[in-house]
Protein backbone atom coordinates (compact mmCIF):
# COMPACT_ATOMS: atom_id res chain seq x y z
CA UNK A 1 0.00 0.00 0.00
CA UNK A 2 1.43 3.37 -1.00
CA UNK A 3 2.11 5.80 1.84
CA UNK A 4 -0.47 8.31 0.55
CA UNK A 5 -3.14 5.64 0.41
CA UNK A 6 -2.22 4.49 3.87
CA UNK A 7 -2.55 8.02 5.24
CA UNK A 8 -5.76 8.70 3.35
CA UNK A 9 -7.36 5.49 4.54
CA UNK A 10 -6.36 6.12 8.15
CA UNK A 11 -7.67 9.68 7.84
CA UNK A 12 -10.99 8.41 6.52
CA UNK A 13 -11.19 5.81 9.28
CA UNK A 14 -10.35 8.28 12.05
CA UNK A 15 -7.09 6.54 12.90
CA UNK A 16 -4.80 9.58 12.74
CA UNK A 17 -3.84 11.89 15.57
CA UNK A 18 -5.25 15.43 15.50
CA UNK A 19 -1.99 16.89 14.19
CA UNK A 20 -1.63 14.19 11.53
CA UNK A 21 -5.23 14.73 10.44
CA UNK A 22 -4.57 18.47 10.08
CA UNK A 23 -1.65 17.79 7.77
CA UNK A 24 -3.78 15.50 5.62
CA UNK A 25 -6.59 18.07 5.49
CA UNK A 26 -4.16 20.67 4.23
CA UNK A 27 -2.79 18.30 1.63
CA UNK A 28 -6.28 17.41 0.45
CA UNK A 29 -6.97 21.05 -0.44
CA UNK A 30 -4.10 20.96 -2.88
CA UNK A 31 -4.65 17.42 -4.15
CA UNK A 32 -7.99 16.97 -5.91
CA UNK A 33 -7.22 13.38 -6.85
CA UNK A 34 -6.77 12.44 -3.20
CA UNK A 35 -9.94 14.33 -2.27
CA UNK A 36 -11.77 12.36 -4.93
CA UNK A 37 -10.48 9.05 -3.53
CA UNK A 38 -11.62 10.13 -0.10
CA UNK A 39 -15.13 10.87 -1.39
CA UNK A 40 -15.17 7.40 -2.94
CA UNK A 41 -14.50 5.84 0.45
CA UNK A 42 -17.17 8.05 2.06
CA UNK A 43 -19.72 7.06 -0.56
CA UNK A 44 -19.04 3.35 -0.20
CA UNK A 45 -19.26 3.56 3.58
CA UNK A 46 -22.51 5.48 3.39
CA UNK A 47 -24.03 2.97 0.99
CA UNK A 48 -23.05 0.05 3.24
CA UNK A 49 -24.48 1.73 6.35
CA UNK A 50 -27.75 2.51 4.59
CA UNK A 51 -28.03 -1.01 3.26
CA UNK A 52 -27.53 -2.50 6.72
CA UNK A 53 -29.88 -0.01 8.34
CA UNK A 54 -32.65 -0.94 5.89
CA UNK A 55 -32.05 -4.67 6.40
CA UNK A 56 -32.23 -4.33 10.19
CA UNK A 57 -35.35 -2.17 9.94
CA UNK A 58 -37.10 -4.76 7.81
CA UNK A 59 -36.30 -7.58 10.21
CA UNK A 60 -38.67 -8.44 13.04
CA UNK A 61 -37.08 -9.46 16.32
CA UNK A 62 -40.33 -10.58 17.92
CA UNK A 63 -39.72 -13.75 19.89
CA UNK A 64 -36.00 -13.62 19.18
CA UNK A 65 -34.94 -13.87 22.81
CA UNK A 66 -37.37 -16.71 23.47
CA UNK A 67 -35.87 -18.67 20.58
CA UNK A 68 -32.36 -18.01 21.88
CA UNK A 69 -33.40 -19.13 25.33
CA UNK A 70 -34.99 -22.30 23.96
CA UNK A 71 -31.84 -23.05 21.98
CA UNK A 72 -29.68 -22.42 25.02
CA UNK A 73 -31.76 -24.81 27.11
CA UNK A 74 -31.52 -27.52 24.45
CA UNK A 75 -27.75 -27.18 24.16
CA UNK A 76 -26.04 -29.86 26.21
CA UNK A 77 -23.88 -28.67 29.10
CA UNK A 78 -20.34 -27.79 28.23
CA UNK A 79 -17.71 -30.40 29.11
CA UNK A 80 -14.38 -29.56 30.69
CA UNK A 81 -12.57 -30.41 27.46
CA UNK A 82 -14.73 -27.99 25.49
CA UNK A 83 -14.22 -25.24 28.03
CA UNK A 84 -10.46 -25.67 27.90
CA UNK A 85 -10.49 -25.85 24.09
CA UNK A 86 -12.59 -22.69 23.88
CA UNK A 87 -10.25 -20.79 26.18
CA UNK A 88 -7.19 -22.04 24.34
CA UNK A 89 -8.67 -21.13 20.99
CA UNK A 90 -9.47 -17.72 22.33
CA UNK A 91 -5.99 -17.29 23.73
CA UNK A 92 -4.06 -18.83 20.88
CA UNK A 93 -5.06 -16.30 18.26
CA UNK A 94 -2.94 -16.37 15.10
CA UNK A 95 -1.10 -13.17 16.01
CA UNK A 96 -0.03 -14.84 19.25
CA UNK A 97 0.64 -18.25 17.77
CA UNK A 98 3.04 -17.26 15.04
CA UNK A 99 5.68 -15.52 17.16
CA UNK A 100 5.55 -18.37 19.68
CA UNK A 101 5.73 -20.96 16.92
CA UNK A 102 8.63 -19.09 15.31
CA UNK A 103 10.53 -18.95 18.62
CA UNK A 104 9.83 -22.64 19.23
CA UNK A 105 11.03 -23.43 15.71
CA UNK A 106 14.29 -21.55 16.21
CA UNK A 107 14.83 -23.28 19.56
CA UNK A 108 14.15 -26.67 17.96
CA UNK A 109 16.59 -25.96 15.12
CA UNK A 110 19.23 -24.93 17.66
CA UNK A 111 18.68 -28.14 19.61
CA UNK A 112 18.88 -30.26 16.47
CA UNK A 113 22.05 -28.47 15.41
CA UNK A 114 23.59 -29.02 18.82
CA UNK A 115 22.51 -32.63 18.78
CA UNK A 116 24.16 -33.19 15.42
CA UNK A 117 27.30 -31.51 16.67
CA UNK A 118 27.42 -33.56 19.84
CA UNK A 119 26.48 -36.74 18.08
CA UNK A 120 29.45 -36.52 15.74
CA UNK A 121 31.79 -38.00 18.32
CA UNK A 122 33.49 -34.82 19.52
CA UNK A 123 33.79 -33.97 23.22
CA UNK A 124 31.95 -31.05 24.78
CA UNK A 125 34.26 -28.11 24.74
CA UNK A 126 34.50 -26.40 28.11
CA UNK A 127 36.69 -23.64 29.38
CA UNK A 128 37.04 -23.06 33.12
CA UNK A 129 38.03 -19.47 33.62
CA UNK A 130 38.57 -19.76 37.37
CA UNK A 131 38.07 -22.29 40.12
CA UNK A 132 37.77 -21.44 43.77
CA UNK A 133 37.34 -23.68 46.76
CA UNK A 134 38.01 -23.35 50.44
CA UNK A 135 40.76 -25.21 52.20
CA UNK A 136 43.68 -26.96 50.69
CA UNK A 137 42.13 -30.27 49.66
CA UNK A 138 41.09 -29.97 46.10
CA UNK A 139 42.27 -31.22 42.77
CA UNK A 140 41.55 -31.24 39.05
CA UNK A 141 42.05 -34.55 37.27
CA UNK A 142 42.18 -35.09 33.55
CA UNK A 143 41.32 -38.76 32.88
CA UNK A 144 42.12 -39.95 29.37
CA UNK A 145 39.27 -41.72 27.58
CA UNK A 146 39.74 -45.37 26.61
CA UNK A 147 38.94 -44.66 22.98
CA UNK A 148 40.41 -41.80 21.03
CA UNK A 149 42.29 -38.81 22.33
CA UNK A 150 39.57 -37.24 24.49
CA UNK A 151 39.54 -36.94 28.24
CA UNK A 152 37.13 -36.51 31.13
CA UNK A 153 37.67 -33.66 33.58
CA UNK A 154 36.98 -34.34 37.27
CA UNK A 155 36.99 -31.48 39.74
CA UNK A 156 37.50 -32.77 43.27
CA UNK A 157 36.93 -30.67 46.39
CA UNK A 158 37.04 -31.71 50.07
CA UNK A 159 35.15 -30.21 52.99
CA UNK A 160 37.00 -27.11 54.13
CA UNK A 161 39.54 -27.83 56.82
CA UNK A 162 38.79 -24.52 58.56
CA UNK A 163 35.20 -25.52 59.11
CA UNK A 164 36.22 -28.98 60.32
CA UNK A 165 38.66 -27.41 62.75
CA UNK A 166 36.07 -25.01 64.08
CA UNK A 167 33.67 -27.85 64.73
CA UNK A 168 36.31 -29.95 66.50
CA UNK A 169 37.06 -27.23 69.04
Amino acid sequence: MARDDDLLMRFHDGELSVSQARVVEERLRAAPAAATRLRAMDALGHALRERTRLAVERQSFDGFFERVERGARQARPLGLRERVAFRLRDWLRPWAVWPVAAAAGVALLALVALGVHNGSGGANDCTIESLEYSGSAGAVFLIPDDKGGGHTTVIWTNETEEQDDAESH
Binding site: T36, R37, A40, M41, A43, L44, H46, A47, E50
Partner: peptide
Protein backbone atom coordinates in the same frame (compact mmCIF):
# COMPACT_ATOMS: atom_id res chain seq x y z
CA UNK B 1 -9.83 2.02 -9.16
CA UNK B 2 -10.50 4.20 -6.17
CA UNK B 3 -11.96 6.94 -8.31
CA UNK B 4 -15.40 7.88 -7.09
CA UNK B 5 -16.41 9.96 -10.08
CA UNK B 6 -19.01 7.36 -10.87
CA UNK B 7 -20.48 7.22 -7.40
CA UNK B 8 -22.08 10.61 -7.35
CA UNK B 9 -24.47 11.42 -4.53
CA UNK B 10 -24.62 8.32 -2.35
CA UNK B 11 -28.01 9.18 -0.91
Amino acid sequence: ELQPSAIGDPV
